[in-house]
Design a protein around this nucleic acid. Structure first.
Length: 296
DNA sequence: AAGGTTTGCAACCGCGTGTGC
DNA sequence: AGCACACGCGGTTGCAAACCT
């Protein structure tokens, strides 16, 4: 499909463009089983004709189990605006405070919606701490605790670093901003004791008390466990991945994904094999690598 | 209804940084 | 200390859908 720039010579012979359902399932299956310790070697080991970067991007942005999907809530948008005013185009750091949202997604939302809105809201006021993105002079003044009140713990200890970076920046932020900041309503994401972000009475200390979870070691067993319980009809599966489960759209990711791929359900053959998907688009690319999944 | 324009977003690229040798 | 490799981030691109005329 040739999105973006021309392919570099080193990647000739690899698939490019949109991912097919088969590729997605192959990647999911491999990561579920082996993890993703080495992105470079992953595509070869998983039998994917993709570069490691492409696999990583696909996983992080669309296939990860803890992703939230659907439109940003007003609260999330407000958080993005405020964090952007504070941090500039540090999308990964902003994403670290919006569990289930990816830097790419936030970046897109910012560029398409929020940038305009932010400039309309408070023209000429912003003197932000971070490099005010894009030299946009209209970035609103951050409200620190409100910006961070919807923050919740990221996916594990390896995700805490960006949050800690943010805390460092918050610590350097103008004190008046901190003093005047009003807490936002509790985030839809902040449902667990893992709540990390300031506001709501938590603050930095609370962040520092985060449990030290070895995400890489535990996540897959957690996921497998939840899958098993869900398949047994257990509606009390905890929100282990911390992505908000409150919305009706937040069904278990794998089932949801498989449904979207047309690979799940009692009547598989009745599932659409291609066509427009609400969440993951597969623009008519089918059957390139059909068949031999690396499921086991 | 058809054609043109705008918008949304998935995917790619280059570069900076971290890590191991 | 220097080098090479791998990863992650931010910017950019282009397709497809939505909207407009």
């Amino acid at each position: 499909m040739g999105r973006g720039r021309a392919p570099c010579c080193a990647k000739v012979g690899l698939n490019r463009g949109s991912w097919t359902p088969q590729e997605d399932m192959r990647l999911i299956a491999y990561i579920q089983k082996h993890g993703h310790a080495n992105w470079r070697a992953l595509p070869r080991q998983a039998g994917l004709l993709r570069c490691g970067k492409s696999c990583r991007l696909r996983w992080i942005n669309y296939l990860r189990p803890d992703l939230r999907r659907g439109n940003f809530t007003a609260e999330e948008e407000a958080t993005v605006i405020k964090l952007h005013a504070l941090l500039g185009n540090k999308w990964s750091k902003i994403a670290a405070c919006l569990p289930g949202r990816t830097d790419n997604e936030i970046k897109n939302v910012w560029n398409t919606h929020l940038k305009k809105r932010a400039s309309e809201q408070k023209p000429g006021v912003g003197e932000s701490k971070g490099e005010a993105a894009d030299g946009d002079p209209d970035t609103p003044v951050p409200s620190l605790s409100s910006a961070s009140s919807s923050m919740t713990s990221s996916e594990g200890s390896n995700e805490l670093e960006p949050v800690m970076d943010i805390l460092d920046m918050l610590a350097d932020a103008p004190t008046e901003a901190l003093a005047t900041a009003a807490p936002m309503p509790t985030s839809s994401c902040s449902s667990s004791s893992l709540t990390t972000c300031a506001g709501g009475g938590g603050g930095v200390e609370e962040l520092l008390e985060l449990p030290d979870i070895d995400m890489d070691a535990d996540i897959w067993s957690i996921i497998d466990d939840d899958i098993a319980r869900l398949q047994q009809g257990d509606a009390t599966v905890p929100c282990t991945t911390k992505a908000s489960q409150e919305e009706e759209g937040n069904e278990w990711w794998l089932q949801d994904l498989e449904k979207e791929l047309g690979l799940w359900g009692p009547t598989e053959e009745s599932q659409p094999q291609a066509g427009p998907h609400d969440q993951i688009g597969y623009p008519g690319q089918l059957s390139e690598t059909e068949g031999d999944m690396v499921m086991e």
